[in-house]
Amino acid sequence: ELSQEQQALLSFIVEAYQKHRIPQDMAKKLLQEQFNAEENFLLLTEMATSHVQVLVEFTKNIPGFSALDHEDQIALLKGSAVEAMFLRSAQVFTRKQPHGHTEVLEDRIRKSGISEEFITPMFTFYKSIGELQMTQEEHALLTAITILSPDRPYVKGQQAVERLQEPMLEVLRRFCAIQHPLEPQHFARLLGRLTELRTLNHHHAEMLTSWRMS
């Protein structure tokens, strides 16, 4: 079972995660089918910016984060923004959408000028997240755990970050055991997705370069 304190932490994180999301009117724009390459580029850039702003607002709610060294806060966010973005996007592609929406979104991404070698791993990742049928709680916790990775470049106070990350990992571990009693490997699988995210993150800078050139 979750202790009272852990339950409170979980509720708090989930509420913050649900509250801080991309503005709906921007998300709606994505579904308008009329777009040329330039509009597409601008919209995806705007979305990415909004993603980061929302991520920062969510992160400010993580207990203890604001007490970390200010430059460490930036290093953590900078190191995790891309991974958190992929995690959030994965939700869009795995949630049941009204008919045709997923196809429009996928088409928009495929026509964005990003080369196929980067697109394929991205959709493979979305698929592997979809297979886990993650709950909102798992998404919120996994995002918080990703942000609180002590081994990001330029983080000085690694132990302070670890002290914030560990309770999140423990809540996620227990939550998985409660929700998936017949799947003892579920927690390990979730953590495995973090490794996949690292790979996507690693290729992201390369992807940006190729996109800009295109």
Binding site: V52, K78, T209
Partner: peptide, 21 residues
Amino acid sequence: PASNLGLEDIIRKALMGNLEE
């Protein structure tokens, strides 16, 4: 890397609470 300059800027602004900018 240059590709990260924009990102850091957005993060710093958002951390300071200047979301409107």
